[in-house]
Design a protein around this nucleic acid. Structure first.
Lengths: 192, 192
DNA sequence: CCTATTTCTTAACTTAAGTGAACGAGTTAT
DNA sequence: ATAACTCGTTCACTTAAGTTAAGAAATAGG
């Protein structure tokens, strides 16, 4: 588990053993059961998450319906919108599977950032990278049909289709569960 | 023009007059004519943009069709995906209007970041903020219909609808220009 | 100033997604 | 063990977006 974290960090900066131990001593790892809620709509929170194992999702409740918009799996980092601007959350976050997460608070990050400039550099690089990557994902979503989005997902995150309930996948693809069912049937039809 | 920039920066950090002069002496402001291309597909680039005045757009050419996916106007910052990972660009960037831009290179930013930690802090805060904001935009896009997206745009960026050609707006909303025309007619119908 | 081109709209038709309902399989709770 | 739910699928029907084509309006270029 620690290795997952340090492998990830090593993509951006290099840490001494001392620094690694300092991080471990902060004791940030948390286990969560499938279905556990990490953040509710309306709540304020200062917590950011890094997924070491498992899967968490972001969802809204719109006119009584759950709309899942994002999944975070191994090596994914998530700072909810409400953390940045200290407002009540517009969405929920919960565990799709039993998960092991690294949970940090913005206060703690601010402290670490000011003590270790190297760490702030990593945060900057990481969020710049995620911003550019998310831009591409958004662009792909805009420029493709539901069917193309599903095919795209099959290529890029085939594991998600196995791990996650269909009705959650559907809203992730921007459609109704019935449409996803139909679309899958249509694709099978084509192959044969 | 300088004020636009320093007003923006002051949201994140405070600068001394000396520091302001240092920034101005870098001479980063560039004027661009409507229609000018800032980045082409396949090109590598190290340039990031901050829009002081005007409007630039990101677009793809997919099966011969232009697909516009993003607009950047006054006080918006853009670091293309290809800058972060030094790969050929998957999209084009061009000016929708005559524009005044601040253009920086990643080399220069790296240098400034290492000399002035304050500046790196600003970059981190900015990209974290943009990441969270873009996440919300993406979520709204996923959870709403083309018509809702248009109504949403009317509320949040009414200026865009005036400044930008309809066919570019259409792909920004994820639909065909004909569908946008129809959808606008439908909305007018409802109001009366 | 007029022509050429681009942009926007409209229309008719096709295709796919939304909606409401029903069903069976699998799960959870009592 | 059975009742109550959840989940995925299918069906019939409605609605909206995609597609192709044509024409009007606005814009740019010579």
């Amino acid at each position: 588990m620690e290795n997952t974290l340090f492998d990830f960090i090593s993509k951006y900066i290099s840490l001494t053993d001392e620094e690694k131990n300092a991080i471990l001593s902060l004791d940030l790892f948390r286990s969560q059961k499938k279905g556990a809620t990490l953040l509710e709509k309306g709540q304020k929170s200062k917590h950011s998450y890094f997924v070491l194992k498992g899967c968490i999702r972001v969802y809204y409740i719109i006119e009584g319906e759950e709309k899942t918009t994002a999944f975070y799996t191994e090596m994914d980092a998530l700072t909810p919108h409400c953390v940045a601007n200290n407002t009540p959350s517009e969405y929920f976050i919960s565990c799709v599977e039993d998960s092991i997460l690294l949970v940090s608070s913005s206060d703690m990050e601010a402290e670490v950032n000011s003590k270790f400039p190297k760490f702030e550099t990593m945060c900057r690089m990481l969020s710049e990278e995620l911003l550019a990557k998310q831009r591409i994902d958004f662009d792909e979503f805009k420029t493709s049909s539901p069917e193309q989005r599903y095919q795209n997902l099959l290529e890029k995150r085939p594991d998600l289709i196995q791990r996650v309930p269909q009705h959650q996948l559907a809203s992730y693809l921007g459609i109704q569960p019935q449409s996803l069912s139909r679309l899958r049937a249509r694709i099978l039809e084509k192959k044969s």
